[in-house]
């Protein structure tokens, strides 16, 4: 077989696709900015026990309303608690809630979406329930769920998961529907592959890209929604330090102690903006098609 020789040859330089993706990600300015912003908050959240000295819940009426300064980096609140400690521990709680919601979505959203998209017989039933849940505005549904379950950190996670899993499932389902018709999936069927193998080797790995993009935005929504719920008093119960709680308390003292509401607000903004930039970057690199649709 002489005429099958390849004149152009195969590129000499070779690179694993995952590596190429990483390289492109780290060249993406928005992604790197987002990663830095989010990374700072994440590091602060993780190292909370070591970078705070004051107990975030210890009252000290003697020290209330101290402005940010040398003794108290972020000042103190209306009960004389260290705002630095409260905001840092609040960051940790935000991260825990965000990561849990993202984790539950990754598992259950993928599961429901993949089942609905792959097995058409399940599709109708699953998607009708999904549509019904998605018909409510996200935050109202979350408020309704926490009001029923009662305010607590765990219930906030549950509520946000109930709200967002249907949305994640829908995104996964639509990628699966497209992927299921790909010719490489048909080739695997023709070779005798079973459903499990097809899902695991051919469909899920290729559905990851839009999924990861979605999850990074979801992290931002979760952090924001958690703050909203606490702010409205249906989230984690005070005195648990969450950004929403701190801001809710600070609301009454905006005049005399504006830092109480401003500092957690800025922290929230940095986190959400960081995650959104990160998500934009991921979307551009992993799934350029989505960019056009938006």
């Amino acid at each position: 077989m002489s005429d099958v020789a390849d004149a152009e040859g195969i590129a000499l330089k070779r690179e694993h696709p995952a590596r190429a993706t990483l390289r492109r990600l780290f060249r993406h300015r928005l992604f790197v900015t987002g990663l830095l912003l989010f990374g700072v908050i994440a590091v602060i959240a993780i190292t909370a026990p070591w970078i705070t000295t004051a107990d975030p819940q210890r009252l000290s009426m003697r020290n209330k309303f101290l402005p940010p300064g040398e003794a108290w980096v972020f000042g103190t609140d209306n009960f004389g608690r260290s705002l630095w400690s409260r905001v840092v521990w609040g960051a940790q709680l935000s991260m825990i809630i965000g990561a849990s919601v993202v984790g539950l979505n990754a598992v259950f959203g993928t599961l429901i979406g993949a089942l609905a998209g792959y097995f058409r017989r399940l599709d109708n039933a699953l998607m009708r329930v999904n549509d019904a849940l998605m018909a409510f505005p996200a935050i109202l549904l979350a408020i309704a769920v926490t009001s029923v379950l009662g305010p607590s950190t765990l219930n906030v996670i549950l509520a946000l998961s109930i709200v967002y899993i249907p949305r994640t499932a829908r995104i996964v389902r639509s990628s699966v529907i497209v992927l299921r018709e790909m010719e490489y999936v048909q080739a695997a069927v023709a070779a005798g592959a079973g459903h499990w193998r097809i899902l695991r080797h051919h469909i899920l790995p290729n559905a990851m890209a839009p999924m990861i993009v979605q999850l990074s935005f979801l992290f931002a929504y979760a952090v924001l929604s958690e703050a909203t719920l606490s702010f409205l008093g249906v989230g984690a119960v005070p005195p648990t330090p969450t950004w929403g709680n701190i801001m809710a308390e600070g609301r009454d003292f905006m005049r005399e102690a504006p830092w109480i509401i401003t500092i957690p607000g800025v922290a929230l903004m940095i986190t959400v903006m960081g995650l959104n930039l990160l998500g934009d970057g991921l979307r551009d690199v992993l799934d350029p098609r989505l960019r056009i649709q938006q």
């Binding site: 696709p17 790909m182 010719e183 490489y184 048909q186 080739a187 080797h201 051919h202 790995p205 290729n206």
Partner: peptide, 10 residues
């Protein structure tokens, strides 16, 4: 298959 781009899992 026809489509050399869609026939191989990337």
């Amino acid at each position: 298959f026809q489509d050399p781009y869609g026939a191989l899992n990337p």
